[in-house]
Amino acid sequence: MTSTSTHAALSESVRAFCDAWEGAEVPMLREQLTEDARLESNLFGTVQGAEPIAEALARDLAVRGQVQITPSNVVVRADAERAVVSAYLWGEATERSGSPSHQTMLWGGMLLLELSLVAPQPRLHTLRLQVNWGKGDVAFMAHWRLPEERLWQPGDPIATIVSDLDAPWRRLPASTLPFSEEAAIAEAWYQYAWGLDLADTAMYAGCFTDDVVAHLPPMGTLRGRREATATLKAFRQPWPWIQHYGEPIEIRIAERGTRASMLLGRLSPGYTRDADGQRLYSGYYRIELRKDAAHRWQIRRLDYQAEWATATTVKWESNIRDA
């Protein structure tokens, strides 16, 4: 494989896993796994071995009718022997057609895959699957151990994914996998969202330049890394189930390659298409980035526009005014 196709293939491992899971395809699931693979999940605990994992995932959704799983925020890191791939997921489970109740449940969470690259083809050896929230007919998936939408209390089960231990940037700090500048720019926001959603303050603080300016309703305009970090930490605390799904709409890289700007759309599961079938965003970010001395993209300006939009209606004009 070339470096480009390796990055693309590793990114596709998320989609392949989701396709196999939602389709309850035991052979397809099994062929993605090493024999000693291990699955950790807050839904159904720990499962060891390729065959038990494939059967557990297939059995989990096979009797639940139609299932569609959508990944976003995909991050890929790798060296010569292993890869770490993370993604946000949302899914919709609906009872089989003909059911009198026609129950539907919408859910969202995170997936962390670790792959061995030394075999003839990449295979999954560690999987962490954490569902953070569920809406609709949650009793429809009563066998899932869904977290409650409240602050932590004694006796609550431990999280399957702990950013301080499991973030892809920590699992594999020195990634040697080449990828495009556009992918690196998008990853800067994915890392910010991951850190914010998983209460990893150091993670999202490191995504900002020292002189960052962020316009984030209802928090207002925040100036400097300290004010942005402290305010976001306080704002996020009451919502441990929060998830920021998003995708780049347009990326512009300045001529010298050290500055860039990006329009990024916020995705709200269940509301991602308008009446004409166009991709629909519940809000969008105007982001300016700067490359540091270590050639890492950092967020210099982060301007959130809280309005419904499509790729044809987003605007580049910023709400931020220089002090």
Score class of each variant (00 low, 15 high):
99 S>K: 08
12 E>S: 12
19 D>F: 11
245 Y>G: 05
201 T>R: 12
205 A>C: 13
250 E>K: 06
91 G>K: 03
90 W>N: 05
109 G>C: 07
323 A>V: 11
15 R>D: 11
46 T>H: 02
287 I>D: 04
95 E>V: 06
155 G>Q: 10
263 L>N: 00
230 A>L: 06
139 A>C: 11
285 Y>G: 00
225 R>P: 03
313 T>G: 08
100 P>V: 09
320 I>T: 04
50 A>R: 01
171 R>P: 10
282 S>K: 02
159 A>M: 07
295 H>W: 08
51 E>W: 01
273 R>H: 13
2 T>P: 05
196 L>A: 13
35 E>V: 14
10 L>F: 03
287 I>K: 01
225 R>Y: 02
16 A>G: 13
226 R>Q: 15
245 Y>A: 12
135 K>V: 15
180 S>I: 11
131 V>S: 14
250 E>R: 10
34 T>H: 00
166 D>F: 04
250 E>A: 13
67 V>L: 14
152 W>V: 04
176 T>M: 14
161 I>P: 03
316 W>L: 10
162 V>L: 09
95 E>S: 07
121 Q>G: 01
95 E>L: 04
31 E>H: 09
168 P>N: 01
249 I>E: 03
191 Q>C: 01
9 A>R: 13
28 M>A: 15
322 D>K: 00
191 Q>S: 04
69 I>E: 06
138 V>W: 11
286 R>T: 09
238 P>W: 09
173 P>T: 12
66 Q>L: 15
144 W>Y: 10
63 V>A: 13
98 G>D: 06
211 D>C: 02
181 E>A: 09
251 I>Q: 05
312 T>S: 14
286 R>H: 03
20 A>G: 03
74 V>A: 01
76 V>P: 07
54 A>Y: 02
294 A>P: 00
24 A>E: 11
40 E>N: 08
233 K>E: 15
16 A>D: 15
307 E>Q: 14
205 A>M: 10
243 Q>W: 01
151 L>T: 05
182 E>P: 00
304 Y>G: 00
270 G>W: 09
9 A>M: 14
67 V>F: 03
121 Q>S: 12
20 A>Y: 06
314 V>N: 02
44 F>D: 07
114 E>S: 11
188 A>I: 10
309 A>I: 10
261 S>Q: 13
49 G>P: 10
31 E>F: 04
242 I>V: 14
234 A>H: 00
298 Q>S: 03
189 W>T: 11
151 L>G: 05
115 L>P: 06
307 E>M: 13
107 W>Y: 09
297 W>Y: 07
9 A>K: 09
76 V>M: 05
211 D>R: 02
232 L>T: 00
277 G>S: 06
9 A>W: 09
152 W>F: 07
162 V>A: 02
27 P>V: 08
315 K>A: 12
78 A>C: 03
168 P>G: 02
291 K>V: 07
234 A>T: 08
78 A>F: 02
305 Q>D: 09
269 P>Y: 02
46 T>F: 01
52 P>Q: 07
